[in-house]
């Protein structure tokens, strides 16, 4: 069954790059929703909580990635959230995981690299 994905990134170009990469990676992706920052993403989820997967940038205006992840978890949203970001240090990874993120993909990425990371996260336990 096709999954519904929410892309959270302040760059419209990067949201389109992610959309193309998701399709090229061979994932069964259906609807793709977009938000330009964390607070906008919370609004998207409040309108449609049936999102199956969230890909989220780190550095964004208004509400950054880790703050969005923490806010989404505090509101009870349990879908996987994967950080897709230029941030890559162990400290950053731990900060994202502590906030409630499920995975981490470092930019730059290829569709294959993104797909491999997401398949692991989307596999049923």
């Amino acid at each position: 069954m096709a999954i519904k994905v929410l892309l959270v990134d302040d760059s419209a170009v990067m949201r389109k790059v992610l959309t193309r990469a998701l399709r090229q990676a061979g994932l069964d992706v259906g609807d793709i929703l977009e938000a330009g920052d964390g607070s906008e993403a919370i609004g998207v989820l409040e309108n449609d909580s049936s999102v199956d997967l969230i890909l989220c940038d780190w550095n964004m205006p208004n509400m950054n990635g880790p703050d969005f992840v923490a806010a989404a978890r505090a509101k009870g949203y349990e879908m996987p959230i994967v950080m897709v970001t230029t941030e890559a240090g162990n400290e950053r990874v731990q900060q994202a995981l502590d906030a409630g993120a499920n995975g981490f993909v470092t930019k730059p990425f290829t569709p294959d690299k993104l797909g491999e990371a997401l398949e692991k996260i989307l596999q049923p336990a």
């Binding site: 760059s11 170009v13 890559a88 730059p108």
Partner: peptide
């Protein structure tokens, strides 16, 4: 034109992120 500027800004962000990783 906003998409062109956004693309160049994103390239700067990507390269800046890679420099940050090296320095970190």
């Amino acid at each position: 034109p906003a998409m062109i500027a956004d693309g160049l800004g994103e390239l700067a962000n990507l390269v800046g992120g890679a420099i940050k990783r090296h320095l970190d």
